[in-house]
Design a protein around this nucleic acid. Sequence first.
DNA 1: AAACGTAATTATGAATTCATAATTCAGTCA
DNA 2: TGACTGAATTATGAATTCATAATTACGTTT
Lengths: 227, 227
Amino acid sequence: MNLTQTIKRPTLHEELVERLRNLVVEDGLKPGEKVPEKELCESFGVSRTPLREALKVLASEGFVVLQANRGARVAEVTRQELENTFPVIAVLEQLAGELACQNLDADELAWIEKRHSAMLRAYQARDRTSYFQANQDVHQALIRGAKNDILEGHHKLLAARVRRVRFMANLSDERWAQAIDEHENMMNRLRARDSGGLGQLMKLHMMNKFAAHIQALDAQSGDTAAT
Amino acid sequence: MNLTQTIKRPTLHEELVERLRNLVVEDGLKPGEKVPEKELCESFGVSRTPLREALKVLASEGFVVLQANRGARVAEVTRQELENTFPVIAVLEQLAGELACQNLDADELAWIEKRHSAMLRAYQARDRTSYFQANQDVHQALIRGAKNDILEGHHKLLAARVRRVRFMANLSDERWAQAIDEHENMMNRLRARDSGGLGQLMKLHMMNKFAAHIQALDAQSGDTAAT
DNA sequence: AAACGTAATTATGAATTCATAATTCAGTCA
DNA sequence: TGACTGAATTATGAATTCATAATTACGTTT
């Protein structure tokens, strides 16, 4: 019996990092907005010290920007940043695909098959919410399956940063069909344990996804500019 | 004329992050060692608040480990971590190579040629220190040349984490010759602006380098175990 | 009324203080 | 002697305080 396990009591600032990051990622705080130290302190019931510690961490992760003597602002997600982030995520997914082929165990593969099926059903029903959930589950399981903490950690951070841009509405019928097709191919490569092939496909899948997003962004800003 | 440029006065904790990270990377604090808050405070002439803020950031970057109510320890570089980090660096360098081919300007290319030549000369003279410097310059310039801040930032962090392991002594004659050969090939691909080719080569170059390091590590620990 | 300058207010970075958890060190008993 | 107990000490996390920079509010001048 292992008695060394301590009671899981995360320190205050760690919890705050989580909650603040969520606030930023889930749009509780809008980009460019000033982070209201005082209000957050009382709403969380903590003093400024741990909150500010958390802000320093968030800043190093790129979610907020610190200005000397002017506090923190929620970082804007610029188009430039998106265009820089996407290819990095893509190569990380490529690596994840390669490693997952080698390291996935049977249980994990079964789970992925299950979520993949759920994703297909969601597509048939044109249920965007379920689709996105299942899709994210598949990708996450592939990353996990790579069994590489460093890879997982960096991927998670980058993914969180782009998740702030709400892409769900951007999914066109054509792109959706294409994405489904790509996922089918990925599953085939995975079942065959073709690591190079899966890696290539995942990278391509990501690049296609991102290209679609950028295109949608452009169309959007074009609209806005025209108005 | 741009008058919006502010006087570069970095905040205390930012400076501390730099200095502490350096201390860890450059081995001023040994892995596993407890981080002596008090001494560092007086040696830097600051109070605990900014120092602890810096430690939180270092922890999120993986250089130190925080234990609740037991302060910070310098993170150990485990073999597992090295084996996980290497492939991630490798794919980032691959991407950097691809992007650098597309985005390098003439000045940057000239600088790389210069440092590449210096590297060759250092090899002829078997001058390890100069070789490592020139080699690092080349790689850094290639990363910079990719013109992708996200890529650069993540690469820098990962590179710092493995730099803590002192590999210089591990360079065998065979591996050295091979590395030089790989660099020549890389330069040829770069001159031809063959982005896919350079990417492939850089990834391979990294994987070979890392394989050699792991081998050396094994030999070393084998020795130690035998003694 | 608009623009400027100055005082009041607020927000921020950093030092200090405080409560508590961890560690050290005696002293006790087997 | 050596393991255990419990008080003394130290270290740590978090709250509070403090000095100063930034912002706002208010008069003054034109």
